[in-house]
């Protein structure tokens, strides 16, 4: 094992899912904000930049449908990742994204470590906040999809259920969107870009692989598992090409800047709109 051994963490298709989510989420945020803030001057400018209120909502609807399709494709992909022969280990093992008892222990240890009361937890492949990120999106997307479809076809909705459910759908769609935007643009961006370990950018979601050294620092339990298995010997992954690194740094920072622009303006102008 050389010191620069690299380990693959995300496959190409997993990185594509993440990229898909970045792009669609950003478009939905912009078009959604342009509609939410349309009674303010900022919302009017945003709407004008998107080509008017009608165009903005049309984009929002089509991208929403695209996201529903993406969610379904991802669910199918998820099913292919389950090892059906060894279901128990596949679902509750260390490589699984399902939260388990170790996550609760890790969280407790980490809180102690914050205040200098002990060693940091020996984390495995997925930290508890990474699992939270994943499942937050996974339950948020169906909620936004169902309420979004209800608002897209209100007449049909009112035939299936009482009309007041549309009021609830508006509320849930808006509240869940605000929750997602706040979480992604503050917590997720902070963890991915600004915290000392990640700064200036946690590259693994774009490069797909990371050095074993880094894993040993961040996720010692996973590194131990990797060292035990003979998987290491078979892997020789090249570090990402320089042009590609430049590309995803520019892309990552563009998205970060744009997200923070939307977040700050959203906070500033939220006092002028009736969200209650």
């Amino acid at each position: 094992m050389t010191p620069m051994t690299r380990i693959n963490r995300f496959t190409v298709i997993e990185r594509m899912f993440h990229l898909f989510l970045i792009l669609t989420f950003l478009v939905q945020t912009v078009t959604g904000f342009s509609r939410l803030f349309i009674s303010t001057i900022w919302g009017k400018n945003l709407t004008a930049a998107l080509g008017g209120a009608e165009t903005s909502i049309t984009i929002h609807k089509w991208i929403g449908i695209l996201m529903i399709a993406g969610f379904m494709v991802h669910t199918l992909y998820l099913l292919t990742r389950i090892n059906w022969g060894d279901l128990k280990n596949s679902l509750f093992g260390p490589d699984s994204l399902i939260p388990n008892r170790k996550d609760a222990k890790d969280l407790w240890k980490r809180i102690q470590w914050f205040f200098g009361l002990g060693e940091p937890p020996r984390m495995d492949r997925w930290a508890y906040w990474e699992k939270f990120d994943y499942w937050a999106v996974y339950w948020g997307m169906p909620l936004l999809a169902v309420t979004g479809l209800m608002l897209m076809y209100p007449i049909l909705t009112s035939r299936i259920m009482p009309g007041w459910t549309i009021n609830i759908a508006v509320l849930l769609h808006r509240a869940e969107a605000i929750l997602a935007i706040t979480y992604i643009f503050i917590v997720h961006f902070y963890i991915g870009h600004l915290r000392p370990t990640s700064f200036p950018m946690n590259e693994v979601m774009f490069s797909g692989s990371l050095p074993l050294e880094e894993i040993q620092k961040e996720k010692p339990a996973w590194a131990a598992r990797l060292n035990q298995s003979d998987a290491l010997n078979h892997r020789s992954i090249n570090p990402p090409a320089r042009w590609y690194r430049v590309f995803y740094y520019v892309f990552g920072y563009a998205v970060l800047g744009f997200g923070i622009y939307l977040l700050i303006n959203g906070i500033i102008y939220s006092r002028y709109i009736p969200i209650h």
């Binding site: 980490r110 509320l171 509240a175 503050i186 963890i191």
Partner: peptide, 30 residues
């Protein structure tokens, strides 16, 4: 409407009340 509003508000406030101090402390400690 009232209870959905409070549920979603509590979810937002709860998530932020946990993750903001958590991530900031993580940054400081790192």
């Amino acid at each position: 409407l009232y209870y959905s509003y409070w549920f979603m508000s509590m979810l937002l406030i709860g998530t932020m009340a946990f993750f903001l101090p958590h991530t900031i402390l993580m940054g400081i400690r790192e």
